[in-house]
Structure formats: C-alpha cells, structure tokens
C-alpha cells in the first residue's frame, strides 16, 4: 500500500494538478471575457467545467475517496444538460436576430 502511495505521488505532486487546473480555468475565464461569439464563450465554459472536474478527480485520487469521482460524474451530467439547453437557446437567438454576436443581445426586449 505504501509503495503505491509513493507511486502516484511520483507521477506529479498535487500542487501541479492545482496549478494545471487553475491555468485551464483562467483560460476559460479569459475566453469568456475576450470573445464575442456566443458559441466560443460556451466552449470556454466547458473548459472551466473540465478544469474543476480534473481538480476534483485529483483530490479524490490523492485522498483515496470515491466521493470526488462521483461528483465529477454528476458535473458531467449537468454539463450535458446545460449544453443541450444552451445550444437550443443559441439557435433560437440566431433565428431572431440573425447573429450570434453577444453585443447584439444587450437589449433583451427586441
């Protein structure tokens, strides 16, 4: 048991997983702030969700607790539901204003 414990720490220390996840999350935030295309903003949100998932899985593996991985599973379910509804909303927006530029949506009324 002790042998495997040092084995997983040899792959990478938990610190590196934290830095990697923080980097991916910041990239997602940057994408949301930088772009005006709704679909690319949506993809950036997916990137943020995946950064959180990766960190949850890393903590779960280092903590020897399956609960973290179950939560990753639930986050994936919520992400799938979110993509289905969100893309439907984007299609509807495109039908109404014939653009997916987010600045066109600053007036919600028409």
């Amino acid at each position: 048991m002790e042998n495997i414990s040092t084995q997983i720490a040899q792959v990478a220390p938990l610190e590196h997983y934290i830095i990697l996840s923080a980097l991916l999350f910041s990239l997602g935030v940057l994408g949301v702030m930088l772009r005006r295309n709704v679909i690319i903003m949506f993809m950036s949100i997916e990137l943020m969700l995946n950064a959180c998932n990766l960190l949850l899985a890393a903590f779960s593996a280092f903590h020897s607790s399956a609960a973290g991985q179950v939560f990753v599973f639930f986050i994936m379910i919520v992400a799938a539901a979110e993509v289905a509804v969100g893309l439907a909303i984007i299609v509807m927006i495109y039908r109404n204003i014939h653009s997916i530029d987010i600045n066109e949506l600053s007036k919600l009324k028409w």
Binding site: M1, Q7, I8, A61, F62, S64, S65, A66
Partner: peptide, 9 residues
Amino acid sequence: AQPYDDQIG
C-alpha cells in the same frame, strides 16, 4: 495521512 487505494476509480 490517507493511505492510497488504487481500486476506487
């Protein structure tokens, strides 16, 4: 302090 369990995944 946690011992590693390689079966949880």
